Simulated scan of single mutants.
Amino acid sequence: MTHKIAILGASGYTGAELVRLIATHPHLEIAALSAERKAGMAMGQVFPHLRHLDLPKLVKIEEIDFTGIDLCFCALPHATSQAVIKGLPETLKIVDLSADFRLRDPAEYEKWYGKPHSALDQQAEAVYGLTEFYRDDIKQARLVAGTGCNAATGQYGLRPLIEAGLIDLDDIIIDLKTGVSGAGRSLKENLLHAELSEGAHPYAVGGTHRHLAEFDQEFSRVAGRPVKVQFTPHLLPANRGIVATVYVKGDPQAIHNALEKAYVGEPFVVTLPFGEAPSTRHVRGSNFAHVGVSADRIDGRAIVVVALDNLTKGSSGQALQNANLMLGIDETAGLMLAPVFP
């Protein structure tokens, strides 16, 4: 059976990544693509690497006829999705890649994003889209809220440990490095080649990064009490990839065993042999996440490292994985692409 899908915001990086993945999907057909500023253009004009595909032209959202479309991916800017999704047909399944529906508490959304939530009915029904931990809920969902790419990376290394009670919840440090595509495709002075290349720098220092709201929400939910982590992201002069180095108090071997047990049978999360650290180059362009554990030289401390591709497993690949579940398709369909190396 073939399901027709639409991608709203197809002229951005995550939209293009969705098109790349869905192009070889055995059960999905792209029926509509939207882009406000590039409406009327062919997708191959906007992204020449997709020129070989037979795709519908980019149109404005209001020009799309959603009759017969089974699922819609919203790859729109933050705050835009709320208004758009509120106006979509109630029968339409939706995977949102923005931050608009990730936080369950509207007050937390207003605190972190600086404006009241404008689609409270839809927010109340949204399921958090970290597939490996919300699989059953996602299968039944109409609206799935994709996670932040940084938030997903940190959670793969920590959720099973918090659930198992293996680490000190008051002493967690996440030191994360991310590629520049996570900042989107809009023109920004600090992302110019001359400003970014040949250097790396921390940003949102001191606990101001919005993905902290997801860490607070999810870790506290798993622990059954408030959990706050120290988190500092760094921008790398690389296009893709996230690597998070997580410092925790706990027995390293027990931590490795818990992660190995948590992800056994998972198609996309791989626990490496004890002492081996993952690299972004080994997951580039794929829906895989690699998790490694090493003992620290200080007794009773461990280092957990997680690597994934921010555009794939951190965003568009995760979105497609969730869409497969929502449509009753094999979860891995369209996603078993090997990483691109070197």
Rank of each mutant, 00 (worst) to 15 (best):
I167F: 07
D168F: 00
D168P: 02
L169E: 07
L169G: 04
D171M: 01
I172A: 07
I173G: 00
I174N: 04
I174R: 02
L176M: 09
L176S: 08
G179N: 04
R185W: 03
L187K: 10
E189S: 13
N190W: 15
L191A: 12
H193L: 09
H193C: 00
A194R: 12
L196H: 08
S197Y: 13
S197P: 00
G199H: 10
A200I: 05
H201Q: 04
H201W: 11
H201M: 05
P202Q: 03
Y203Q: 05
A204C: 14
A204F: 13
V205L: 13
H209F: 13
H209V: 02
H211F: 14
L212P: 03
F215W: 08
F215P: 08
D216Q: 15
D216F: 15
Q217M: 14
Q217R: 10
Q217W: 09
E218D: 12
E218Y: 07
F219A: 11
F219Q: 00
S220Y: 08
S220A: 07
R221C: 01
R221I: 01
R221W: 04
V222Y: 08
V222A: 14
A223M: 11
G224F: 09
G224K: 10
R225P: 00
R225I: 03
P226G: 04
P226C: 09
V227F: 12
V227S: 10
V227R: 06
V227N: 04
Q230G: 08
T232I: 15
T232L: 06
H234P: 04
L235W: 10
L235N: 10
L236F: 08
L236N: 09
A238F: 07
R240E: 15
G241Q: 11
I242N: 07
V243C: 10
A244K: 04
A244D: 11
A244I: 02
T245P: 03
T245F: 10
V248H: 12
G250E: 04
D251P: 05
D251V: 05
D251M: 07
P252Q: 05
Q253L: 06
Q253W: 01
A254Q: 13
H256M: 04
N257G: 09
N257Q: 15
N257W: 00
A258T: 02
L259D: 05
L259Y: 08
L259G: 03
L259M: 05
E260C: 01
E260I: 00
K261V: 02
K261Y: 00
A262P: 09
Y263M: 03
V264K: 11
V264I: 08
G265W: 12
E266H: 14
P267R: 06
P267V: 02
F268G: 01
T271L: 11
L272K: 07
L272D: 06
P273I: 00
P273E: 10
F274H: 08
G275C: 09
G275I: 08
E276N: 07
E276I: 13
E276T: 09
A277Y: 02
A277Q: 15
P278E: 09
S279N: 14
R281S: 15
R281D: 15
R281K: 14
V283D: 13
G285K: 09
G285P: 07
S286A: 14
S286Y: 14
S286F: 12
S286C: 10
N287I: 05
F288T: 12
F288G: 00
A289R: 01
A289P: 02
H290A: 08
H290T: 04
V291G: 06
G292S: 03
